[in-house]
Protein backbone atom coordinates (compact mmCIF):
# COMPACT_ATOMS: atom_id res chain seq x y z
CA UNK A 1 0.00 0.00 0.00
CA UNK A 2 1.29 3.45 -0.87
CA UNK A 3 1.88 6.24 1.53
CA UNK A 4 -0.22 9.37 1.08
CA UNK A 5 2.12 11.32 3.32
CA UNK A 6 5.15 10.63 1.13
CA UNK A 7 3.40 11.24 -2.17
CA UNK A 8 1.85 14.54 -1.14
CA UNK A 9 4.49 15.84 1.17
CA UNK A 10 7.58 15.35 -0.96
CA UNK A 11 6.71 18.44 -2.98
CA UNK A 12 6.50 20.57 0.14
CA UNK A 13 9.49 22.82 0.90
CA UNK A 14 11.36 21.59 3.94
CA UNK A 15 10.01 18.07 3.53
CA UNK A 16 11.77 15.49 5.62
CA UNK A 17 11.19 11.77 5.82
CA UNK A 18 9.08 10.80 8.84
CA UNK A 19 11.51 8.00 9.64
CA UNK A 20 14.32 10.56 9.96
CA UNK A 21 12.21 12.87 12.14
CA UNK A 22 11.05 9.95 14.29
CA UNK A 23 14.66 8.89 14.83
CA UNK A 24 15.62 12.37 16.05
CA UNK A 25 12.59 13.10 18.23
CA UNK A 26 10.45 11.31 20.84
CA UNK A 27 7.76 10.73 18.16
CA UNK A 28 7.02 7.46 16.41
CA UNK A 29 6.69 7.41 12.62
CA UNK A 30 2.88 7.22 12.99
CA UNK A 31 2.95 10.24 15.28
CA UNK A 32 5.11 12.23 12.84
CA UNK A 33 2.56 11.43 10.15
CA UNK A 34 -0.30 12.52 12.39
CA UNK A 35 1.62 15.74 13.09
CA UNK A 36 1.76 16.29 9.36
CA UNK A 37 -2.05 16.51 9.38
CA UNK A 38 -1.88 19.24 11.99
CA UNK A 39 0.96 20.96 10.13
CA UNK A 40 -1.02 20.91 6.87
CA UNK A 41 -4.01 22.44 8.61
CA UNK A 42 -2.01 25.30 10.16
CA UNK A 43 0.26 25.92 7.16
CA UNK A 44 -2.64 26.22 4.72
CA UNK A 45 -4.85 28.44 6.86
CA UNK A 46 -3.83 31.70 5.13
CA UNK A 47 -1.26 30.87 2.43
CA UNK A 48 -1.31 27.29 1.20
CA UNK A 49 2.43 26.91 0.65
CA UNK A 50 3.38 24.17 3.08
CA UNK A 51 5.06 26.60 5.45
CA UNK A 52 3.78 28.13 8.68
CA UNK A 53 3.94 31.91 8.51
CA UNK A 54 3.74 33.99 11.67
CA UNK A 55 0.15 35.06 11.00
CA UNK A 56 -0.85 31.41 10.60
CA UNK A 57 0.85 30.58 13.88
CA UNK A 58 -1.01 33.44 15.60
CA UNK A 59 -4.27 32.31 14.03
CA UNK A 60 -3.77 28.75 15.32
CA UNK A 61 -2.83 29.95 18.81
CA UNK A 62 -5.32 32.77 19.31
CA UNK A 63 -7.95 32.29 16.55
CA UNK A 64 -6.81 35.76 15.49
CA UNK A 65 -4.16 36.32 12.82
CA UNK A 66 -3.38 39.86 13.92
CA UNK A 67 -2.96 39.26 17.63
CA UNK A 68 0.64 40.09 18.43
CA UNK A 69 2.09 38.59 21.58
CA UNK A 70 5.68 38.77 22.79
CA UNK A 71 5.71 35.14 23.93
CA UNK A 72 4.11 33.75 20.79
CA UNK A 73 6.73 35.70 18.82
CA UNK A 74 9.48 34.11 20.88
CA UNK A 75 8.04 30.61 20.42
CA UNK A 76 7.75 31.21 16.67
CA UNK A 77 11.35 32.43 16.50
CA UNK A 78 12.61 29.38 18.38
CA UNK A 79 10.62 27.00 16.15
CA UNK A 80 12.07 28.77 13.10
CA UNK A 81 15.40 26.98 13.45
CA UNK A 82 16.71 28.18 10.08
CA UNK A 83 15.67 31.73 10.97
CA UNK A 84 14.10 32.36 7.57
CA UNK A 85 10.78 33.70 8.87
CA UNK A 86 8.71 30.54 8.39
CA UNK A 87 8.34 27.19 10.12
CA UNK A 88 8.97 24.16 7.93
CA UNK A 89 7.59 20.73 8.76
CA UNK A 90 10.90 19.39 10.05
CA UNK A 91 11.31 22.43 12.31
CA UNK A 92 7.73 21.98 13.55
CA UNK A 93 8.30 18.34 14.50
CA UNK A 94 11.74 18.87 16.06
CA UNK A 95 10.53 21.83 18.11
CA UNK A 96 7.32 20.15 19.24
CA UNK A 97 9.45 17.17 20.23
CA UNK A 98 10.74 19.24 23.15
CA UNK A 99 7.12 19.49 24.39
CA UNK A 100 6.58 15.72 24.25
CA UNK A 101 5.91 14.14 27.67
CA UNK A 102 8.88 11.81 27.08
CA UNK A 103 11.34 14.54 26.06
CA UNK A 104 14.26 15.07 28.47
CA UNK A 105 13.53 17.69 31.15
CA UNK A 106 16.93 19.25 30.43
CA UNK A 107 15.75 20.05 26.88
CA UNK A 108 12.57 21.67 28.21
CA UNK A 109 14.53 23.75 30.71
CA UNK A 110 16.99 24.87 28.02
CA UNK A 111 14.16 25.75 25.62
CA UNK A 112 12.40 27.87 28.26
CA UNK A 113 15.69 29.63 29.02
CA UNK A 114 16.17 30.57 25.37
CA UNK A 115 12.55 31.70 25.25
CA UNK A 116 13.12 34.15 28.08
CA UNK A 117 16.58 35.26 26.92
CA UNK A 118 14.93 37.91 24.75
CA UNK A 119 18.13 39.50 23.46
CA UNK A 120 20.05 36.24 22.96
CA UNK A 121 22.84 37.21 25.32
CA UNK A 122 23.01 33.82 27.02
CA UNK A 123 21.53 35.35 30.17
CA UNK A 124 18.12 36.45 31.40
CA UNK A 125 18.57 40.02 32.53
CA UNK A 126 16.44 42.03 34.93
CA UNK A 127 15.31 44.36 32.17
CA UNK A 128 14.12 41.39 30.11
CA UNK A 129 12.24 39.97 33.07
CA UNK A 130 10.44 43.26 33.64
CA UNK A 131 9.64 43.56 29.93
CA UNK A 132 8.07 40.09 30.01
CA UNK A 133 6.02 40.87 33.13
CA UNK A 134 4.73 44.07 31.51
CA UNK A 135 3.87 42.12 28.32
CA UNK A 136 1.94 39.60 30.38
CA UNK A 137 0.04 42.36 32.19
CA UNK A 138 -0.80 43.99 28.88
CA UNK A 139 -2.08 40.71 27.47
CA UNK A 140 -4.13 39.77 30.53
CA UNK A 141 -5.65 43.14 31.40
CA UNK A 142 -4.32 42.55 34.88
CA UNK A 143 -3.51 45.88 36.49
CA UNK A 144 -0.55 46.15 38.85
CA UNK A 145 1.13 49.41 39.79
CA UNK A 146 4.71 49.96 38.69
CA UNK A 147 5.80 49.67 42.34
CA UNK A 148 4.24 46.23 42.60
CA UNK A 149 5.79 45.13 39.30
CA UNK A 150 9.19 46.34 40.50
CA UNK A 151 8.71 44.46 43.75
CA UNK A 152 7.79 41.20 41.98
CA UNK A 153 10.69 41.50 39.53
CA UNK A 154 13.17 42.40 42.30
CA UNK A 155 12.09 39.56 44.54
CA UNK A 156 12.20 37.01 41.71
CA UNK A 157 15.53 38.24 40.47
CA UNK A 158 17.13 38.04 43.89
CA UNK A 159 15.74 34.54 44.31
CA UNK A 160 17.02 33.33 40.92
CA UNK A 161 20.30 35.24 40.61
CA UNK A 162 22.05 33.24 43.31
CA UNK A 163 25.51 34.37 42.16
CA UNK A 164 24.39 37.98 42.53
CA UNK A 165 25.94 39.22 39.29
CA UNK A 166 22.78 40.87 38.02
CA UNK A 167 21.86 38.25 35.45
CA UNK A 168 20.43 34.74 35.43
CA UNK A 169 22.61 32.15 33.73
CA UNK A 170 21.59 28.67 32.61
CA UNK A 171 22.89 27.03 35.78
CA UNK A 172 20.91 29.43 37.99
CA UNK A 173 17.84 28.91 35.79
CA UNK A 174 18.08 25.14 36.17
CA UNK A 175 18.32 25.48 39.93
CA UNK A 176 15.44 27.99 40.05
CA UNK A 177 13.20 25.69 38.00
CA UNK A 178 13.97 22.79 40.33
CA UNK A 179 12.56 24.92 43.16
CA UNK A 180 9.54 26.03 41.12
CA UNK A 181 8.69 23.01 38.93
CA UNK A 182 5.32 24.50 37.96
CA UNK A 183 7.30 26.80 35.64
CA UNK A 184 7.83 23.84 33.33
CA UNK A 185 4.15 22.89 33.18
CA UNK A 186 3.50 24.46 29.78
CA UNK A 187 6.64 22.87 28.37
CA UNK A 188 4.82 19.52 28.24
CA UNK A 189 1.83 18.95 25.96
CA UNK A 190 -0.03 15.77 26.94
CA UNK A 191 -1.80 15.95 23.54
CA UNK A 192 1.42 14.88 21.87
CA UNK A 193 1.10 11.42 23.39
CA UNK A 194 -2.29 11.04 21.76
CA UNK A 195 -1.58 12.83 18.52
CA UNK A 196 -2.56 9.83 16.41
CA UNK A 197 -5.96 9.85 18.13
CA UNK A 198 -6.37 13.58 17.55
CA UNK A 199 -5.47 13.29 13.87
CA UNK A 200 -6.31 9.70 12.96
CA UNK A 201 -7.37 10.21 9.34
CA UNK A 202 -3.91 9.79 7.94
CA UNK A 203 -2.89 6.82 10.04
CA UNK A 204 -6.05 4.94 9.09
CA UNK A 205 -5.59 5.64 5.40
CA UNK A 206 -1.95 4.77 4.97
CA UNK A 207 0.87 2.55 5.91
CA UNK A 208 4.49 3.43 6.32
CA UNK A 209 6.89 2.44 3.61
CA UNK A 210 9.92 0.60 4.88
Amino acid sequence: MGCLYSKNARNVPGYEEPTVLAAETPFTVDEVQALYELFKKISSSIIDDGLIHKEEFQLALFRNRNRRNLFADRVFDLFDLKRNGVIEFGEFVRSLGVFHPNAPMADKIAFAFRLYDLRHTGYIEREELKEMVLALLHESDLVLSDDVVEMIVDKTFKDADTKGDGRIDQEEWKEFVSRYPSLMKNMTLPYLKDITLAFPSFVLSSEVED
Binding site: A72, L115, V133, A135, T156, A198
Partner: peptide, 26 residues
Protein backbone atom coordinates in the same frame (compact mmCIF):
# COMPACT_ATOMS: atom_id res chain seq x y z
CA UNK B 1 -2.80 31.86 43.78
CA UNK B 2 -2.86 35.60 43.20
CA UNK B 3 -0.34 37.54 41.11
CA UNK B 4 1.13 39.04 44.26
CA UNK B 5 2.18 35.67 45.62
CA UNK B 6 3.53 34.45 42.29
CA UNK B 7 7.09 35.02 41.23
CA UNK B 8 7.66 36.85 37.95
CA UNK B 9 8.29 33.68 35.94
CA UNK B 10 5.14 32.04 37.32
CA UNK B 11 3.22 35.12 36.20
CA UNK B 12 4.82 35.04 32.73
CA UNK B 13 4.14 31.32 32.30
CA UNK B 14 0.40 32.02 32.37
CA UNK B 15 0.68 33.80 29.00
CA UNK B 16 -1.62 32.50 26.29
CA UNK B 17 1.30 32.78 23.91
CA UNK B 18 3.06 30.03 25.86
CA UNK B 19 0.06 27.73 25.91
CA UNK B 20 0.68 25.67 22.80
CA UNK B 21 -2.15 23.27 23.60
CA UNK B 22 -4.43 25.61 21.68
CA UNK B 23 -2.63 24.49 18.49
CA UNK B 24 -4.38 21.16 18.89
CA UNK B 25 -7.88 22.51 19.36
CA UNK B 26 -10.09 21.86 16.39
Amino acid sequence: TTPLTMNAFELISTSQGLNLSSLFEK
